[in-house]
Deep mutational scan, measured.
Amino acid sequence: MDVFMKGLSKAKEGVVAAAEKTKQGVAEAAGKTKEGVLYVGSKTKEGVVHGVATVAEKTKEQVTNVGGAVVTGVTAVAQKTVEGAGSIAAATGFVKKDQLGKNEEGAPQEGILEDMPVDPDNEAYEMPSEEGYQDYEPEA
């Protein structure tokens, strides 16, 4: 019985440690998101679009440190934060509304985080759909 109880105690310690790591990862992701939003706020009209992409990228980098179902929630929060940063930029006159959601080359930025393969159960990952990809044929 002692062996059984000791095993359960060790398992509990492992769960607590994993929860603490997840909590730490979420806190880091939130900190990076805040950094990115402050970065966007300090940019001029020309830099705002690039700044919004930076927020998304920093958040995406930190999301990889967070495991399990938390990833889905962090990704949703990050996307809403990026959308909010863009709205703030438009409201303050840093950028025109028609410039939001495009990178410096004018290509749409939507789907940055949505296409990231995420499995809350950590069982399997699927690649994003290939609808947006084109076949590449090298020139002879």
Rank of each mutant, 00 (worst) to 15 (best):
D2Q: 13
D2S: 02
V3H: 04
V3K: 01
V3P: 00
V3C: 02
V3Y: 02
F4T: 00
F4R: 00
F4Q: 00
M5K: 12
M5V: 08
M5L: 00
M5T: 01
K6E: 02
K6D: 03
K6S: 02
K6P: 00
L8T: 00
L8C: 01
K10H: 03
A11Q: 00
K12T: 12
K12V: 15
G14P: 01
G14H: 14
V15I: 14
V15W: 08
V15E: 00
V15Q: 00
V15G: 00
V15T: 01
V16C: 12
V16P: 00
V16S: 09
A17D: 02
A19R: 02
A19L: 15
E20Q: 11
E20K: 03
E20C: 08
E20N: 09
K21E: 00
K21M: 14
K21H: 04
T22D: 00
T22F: 07
T22H: 02
K23V: 05
K23Y: 06
K23E: 00
K23W: 14
K23H: 07
Q24A: 13
G25D: 03
G25L: 15
G25M: 10
G25K: 15
V26H: 00
V26D: 00
V26N: 00
V26W: 13
A27L: 13
E28R: 12
E28M: 07
E28D: 07
E28G: 02
A29D: 00
A30T: 06
G31L: 12
G31R: 08
K32E: 00
K32Y: 12
T33Y: 02
T33R: 01
K34C: 06
E35S: 07
E35G: 05
E35M: 13
G36Y: 07
G36T: 15
G36F: 04
G36P: 01
G36N: 15
G36W: 10
G36R: 13
G36S: 11
V37Y: 15
V37N: 00
V37E: 00
L38Y: 11
L38A: 04
Y39W: 11
Y39S: 05
V40S: 00
V40P: 00
V40T: 01
V40C: 05
G41Y: 12
G41H: 12
G41K: 02
S42G: 06
S42A: 15
S42L: 10
S42Q: 07
K43V: 14
K43T: 04
K43C: 12
K43W: 09
T44I: 15
T44C: 15
T44N: 01
T44Q: 01
K45T: 13
K45N: 01
K45I: 11
G47R: 13
G47M: 07
G47E: 03
G47A: 15
V48G: 01
V49F: 09
V49D: 01
V49R: 10
H50C: 08
H50G: 08
H50E: 07
G51R: 11
V52Y: 15
V52H: 01
V52S: 02
A53M: 15
T54A: 11
V55W: 14
V55I: 07
V55E: 00
V55C: 08
A56N: 02
A56Q: 05
E57A: 08
E57L: 10
E57Q: 05
E57W: 05
E57F: 08
K58E: 01
K58Y: 06
K58Q: 06
T59A: 11
T59G: 06
K60C: 10
K60A: 14
K60Q: 06
E61Q: 10
E61D: 06
Q62D: 02
Q62P: 02
Q62Y: 06
Q62M: 06
T64L: 10
N65H: 05
N65M: 07
N65G: 09
N65W: 11
V66T: 02
V66Y: 12
V66W: 14
V66P: 01
V66K: 02
V66L: 11
G67C: 11
G67I: 10
G67A: 10
G67T: 11
G68Q: 05
G68K: 12
A69C: 05
A69M: 04
V70Q: 01
V70H: 01
V70R: 01
V71Y: 05
T72Q: 10
T72I: 07
T72A: 14
G73R: 07
G73S: 13
V74Q: 01
V74S: 02
V74W: 12
V74K: 01
V74F: 09
V74L: 15
T75R: 06
A76L: 13
V77G: 04
V77K: 02
A78K: 06
Q79L: 11
Q79P: 02
Q79T: 04
K80G: 04
K80Q: 05
K80Y: 08
K80R: 10
T81W: 05
T81V: 15
V82S: 05
V82A: 11
V82E: 02
E83Y: 02
E83Q: 10
E83P: 06
E83A: 12
E83L: 05
G84S: 11
A85G: 09
A85M: 13
G86H: 08
G86A: 08
G86P: 06
S87H: 13
S87V: 13
S87R: 04
I88Q: 03
I88R: 04
I88L: 08
I88C: 05
A89G: 07
A89Y: 12
A90G: 01
A90H: 12
A90W: 14
A91E: 04
A91N: 05
A91D: 03
A91G: 05
A91I: 05
T92A: 07
T92H: 04
G93F: 02
G93H: 07
G93Q: 03
G93E: 05
F94D: 03
V95G: 12
V95N: 09
K96D: 07
K96R: 08
K96G: 10
K96L: 09
K96Q: 05
K96M: 14
K97N: 07
D98N: 10
Q99Y: 12
Q99K: 03
L100Q: 10
L100I: 05
L100V: 12
L100D: 14
K102P: 14
K102V: 13
K102Q: 01
N103Q: 10
N103A: 06
N103R: 06
E104D: 14
E105K: 02
E105T: 13
G106I: 12
G106F: 12
G106R: 07
P108L: 10
Q109R: 08
E110P: 11
E110H: 03
E110I: 05
I112F: 04
I112A: 03
L113S: 11
L113I: 09
L113A: 12
L113R: 08
L113F: 12
E114R: 11
E114Q: 04
E114T: 08
D115P: 03
D115L: 05
D115R: 05
D115Q: 09
M116C: 13
M116H: 15
M116V: 02
M116G: 03
P117A: 06
P117W: 10
P117F: 10
V118G: 08
D119E: 11
D119C: 15
D119F: 03
D119W: 03
P120D: 05
P120K: 06
P120E: 06
P120I: 09
P120C: 06
D121T: 11
D121L: 09
N122E: 13
E123K: 11
E123V: 15
A124K: 15
A124G: 09
A124F: 11
Y125G: 10
E126R: 08
E126A: 14
M127D: 05
M127F: 10
M127S: 04
M127G: 04
P128A: 09
P128I: 12
P128H: 04
P128W: 09
S129L: 06
S129W: 05
E130L: 08
E131K: 10
E131H: 09
E131Q: 07
G132A: 09
G132P: 04
Y133V: 06
Y133H: 11
Y133I: 02
Y133A: 06
Y133R: 02
Q134I: 09
Q134F: 11
Q134H: 04
Q134A: 07
Y136D: 02
Y136S: 14
Y136R: 03
E137L: 08
E137S: 13
E139G: 06
E139K: 10
E139L: 07
A140Y: 08
A140M: 08
A140P: 07
A140T: 08
A140N: 15
